[in-house]
Computed example of a mutant assay.
Amino acid sequence: MNIDKITRTNPENMPAPVGQYTHITRIPRNAELFVTSGQIGADHNGLFPESLNEQVTNTFNNIKTVLESERLDAEHIIKVNVWATEKIDWDFLYAEWGQLFSTDYPAMTIGYITALGLPEIKIEIELWAAKV
């Protein structure tokens, strides 16, 4: 199959995704690949709010800044990895998610872990993106 754009699919013989993601994201052979470091919930001064939801907001603001720096947007994101040290408020996260994505979701992995790089970090989100 020769594709010239990023495509996202869910195989018919699998259960539907349990969240806002797609099972398969395919990129064309000639795409330029971008991989971000994990974005965290620090504000512009490098300070971390105490609540996870405030860190989620900061993380998405940082993601938008990183994407804009390379002239990328949600349509270019092919994979998202999320790590959190405490239970995620999914309604809140998906509200922030919805400001970045419409309904054409990338592939995604989520993991709960005991700690991230610094004790005050509660969430980290890594992106993979491609530009055709």
Score class of each variant (00 low, 15 high):
94 Y>R: 09
60 F>G: 01
114 T>R: 13
90 W>S: 11
39 Q>K: 15
28 P>F: 04
50 E>Y: 08
36 T>F: 00
8 R>T: 03
5 K>C: 08
72 L>Q: 09
12 E>N: 10
103 T>P: 00
118 L>W: 09
99 Q>V: 09
76 H>N: 15
32 E>M: 06
102 S>I: 04
36 T>A: 11
81 N>A: 10
52 L>Y: 11
3 I>H: 02
92 F>Y: 15
19 G>F: 00
116 L>A: 08
1 M>R: 13
1 M>P: 13
64 K>D: 06
63 I>P: 08
73 D>Y: 07
55 Q>W: 10
87 K>Y: 09
69 S>C: 02
16 A>T: 15
125 I>Q: 03
10 N>T: 12
101 F>T: 06
131 K>L: 04
86 E>G: 02
94 Y>G: 00
97 W>K: 05
98 G>L: 02
104 D>A: 12
120 E>C: 01
35 V>T: 13
127 L>Q: 07
118 L>T: 11
25 T>D: 04
108 M>R: 06
10 N>K: 04
17 P>W: 00
118 L>D: 12
84 A>K: 08
43 D>E: 08
57 T>C: 05
68 E>T: 12
18 V>T: 15
69 S>T: 05
70 E>N: 12
12 E>M: 06
107 A>W: 00
11 P>R: 08
123 I>P: 07
93 L>Q: 06
46 G>I: 08
20 Q>H: 12
13 N>S: 10
115 A>D: 09
114 T>K: 15
7 T>V: 15
78 I>Q: 04
73 D>M: 01
128 W>M: 13
109 T>L: 12
5 K>Y: 06
91 D>A: 13
8 R>G: 04
112 Y>A: 09
131 K>D: 01
81 N>E: 15
56 V>Y: 04
51 S>W: 03
121 I>T: 13
80 V>M: 09
37 S>I: 05
93 L>K: 03
15 P>K: 14
123 I>S: 07
74 A>M: 01
75 E>Q: 13
130 A>K: 10
34 F>H: 14
31 A>C: 07
24 I>Q: 02
73 D>F: 00
59 T>G: 09
59 T>M: 06
115 A>L: 07
5 K>M: 09
75 E>M: 06
76 H>L: 03
87 K>S: 15
25 T>S: 04
33 L>A: 08
106 P>F: 05
18 V>R: 11
35 V>H: 08
8 R>K: 12
91 D>H: 10
89 D>F: 00
10 N>V: 06
130 A>M: 03
61 N>K: 13
38 G>A: 11
107 A>E: 10
4 D>Q: 14
3 I>S: 02
78 I>F: 07
16 A>M: 15
60 F>P: 05
82 V>R: 07
122 K>I: 04
116 L>D: 09
86 E>C: 02
46 G>N: 08
38 G>Y: 07
12 E>Q: 14
122 K>Y: 04
83 W>K: 11
17 P>K: 01
